[in-house]
């Protein structure tokens, strides 16, 4: 395999280049996916049937904590990639671990949030609004969950194989994915929670 040393490690082979572009296109598809979910959500937002409205069930505290956790994890994954570029394996792994812990904490809060919703009578089957809300949040949560395991696997690979063009490429792509989830969360935070609470 041809390795071009003038480029960052994650871009150094032809295959790596393809993968990064391919992943950007995948993110394009993901944007459409979430856009569709948002469209469905906004359409169904006021169709609460016999169930509660957003203002009835949203709680600012856990949401704020989730936001801070995810934003922080987005920052640490950035640091991980920075460390990777400086070829510091230990630091890369360290930031990866922090990112994953933050991600797990986010998921913990989200699970709490979901049980809370079910508890206050906003289950999946309650109304069109709750279905759209829980599906949108759930899809994001599912992405974070999958991302958590993916990140974990990459972490193990960095530990075992070191910073090679492959692991660097995987880490970089993972960071794109993680930032993307963060941006989606910002949209969820602003247009679902804040708008819903007002």
């Amino acid at each position: 395999m041809k390795v071009d040393n003038s480029l960052p490690l994650e871009y150094s082979t032809e295959e790596n280049n393809l993968k990064i572009l391919g992943f950007w296109i995948f993110i394009g598809a993901e944007i459409m996916l979430f856009a569709t979910l948002f469209t469905a959500y906004f359409t169904l937002e006021n169709r609460t049937g016999n169930g509660p409205t957003g203002a009835d069930i949203f709680e600012i505290a856990p949401v704020l904590v989730e936001t801070i956790l995810l934003l922080a994890s987005s920052f640490t994954i950035g640091l991980a990639i920075h460390a990777m570029r400086l070829n510091k394996k230990k630091a890369t792994m360290g930031f990866f671990i922090v990112t994953l812990i933050l991600g797990a904490a986010f998921l913990g809060f989200e699970i709490y949030e979901f049980t809370h919703y079910v508890h206050v009578g906003a289950g999946l089957q309650t109304s069109a609004f709750t279905a759209a809300l829980l599906t949108t949040l759930g899809t994001h949560g599912l992405h974070v969950t999958l991302g958590f395991f993916w990140g974990l696997f990459i972490l193990i690979q960095i530990k075992k194989r070191g910073l090679t063009p492959e692991t660097a490429n995987k880490s970089f792509i993972f960071s794109l994915y993680w930032h993307f989830l963060d941006i989606i969360w910002i949209f969820i935070f602003s247009f679902i929670y804040l708008k819903g609470m007002m």
Partner: peptide, 17 residues
């Protein structure tokens, strides 16, 4: 209809039910 156009249907919806 279930609030496809106006925003204050939440109230009217409840009333309706």
């Amino acid at each position: 209809d279930h609030g496809s156009t106006d925003n204050n249907t939440n109230e009217s919806e409840h009333e309706q039910h």
